[in-house]
């Protein structure tokens, strides 16, 4: 990231600024999308769309940082879920599970399925994408403090869900709510 401020000319062209943003953000953005949508080529399509928007931002004089670009990707991802779900509420929600890459570990899959959507998103941004709370705050449009509190709750919920799953044979198993 620091490299973006040491371009050879004091007033880099839009193309050069775009290239810097692209170099800093592309892999993170692609992986963020590939973790969340199937089939795989959609991740490439959406990445292309993200950088079309980034290009427009750069032309407007902006110098987007990684969290901001991931926030763009997040919006496009949500739109993709809706569009591919034919814009119906029924299909949209069902397609979330249908379109997302499968989590191979069944215990983790069940644990994640038991979480609220917001909790799941926070955990995956933290443990899959390795974003800090401050970066997640930018991505989600929330304050860092709120993100930390929600993340704390999400961790507790995930741990409780796994514990519940692991004791599934108990006679008084508690049903897990999302």
């Amino acid at each position: 990231m620091e490299g973006m401020t040491t371009l050879p000319r004091p007033a880099p062209s839009a193309e050069e600024r775009f290239a810097a943003v692209h170099a800093a953000c592309h892999d993170t953005v692609y992986r963020y999308l590939a973790r969340r949508i199937l089939p795989a080529h959609l991740a490439e399509d959406l990445t292309g769309e993200v950088f079309v928007i980034v290009w427009e931002k750069v032309l407007d004089g902006a110098h987007p940082q990684v969290p901001y670009v991931v926030a763009i990707a997040r919006n496009l991802l949500r739109n993709a879920y809706r569009v591919s779900a034919k814009a119906t509420k029924l299909r949209t929600a069902l397609s979330l599970a249908h379109q997302r890459p499968a989590v191979q570990n069944p215990l983790v899959a069940l644990g994640l399925a038991a979480l609220k959507e917001t909790e799941r998103e926070l955990l995956l941004l933290t443990y899959w994408d390795s974003f800090t709370s401050e970066e997640i705050a930018v991505i989600l449009g929330a304050s860092p403090g709120a993100v930390r509190v929600r993340l704390h709750r999400a961790r507790k919920s995930f741990a409780a869900a796994l514990e519940s799953e692991s004791t599934q044979h108990g006679p008084t198993r508690k049903a897990v709510r999302p």
Partner: peptide
């Protein structure tokens, strides 16, 4: 456990490079 369930593994490398 959670990190190990990341579905974006090495098999995405070629697609990532292409993108």
């Amino acid at each position: 456990l959670l990190r190990g369930s990341d579905p974006c593994g090495a098999e995405h490398d070629s697609a990532l490079a292409r993108s």
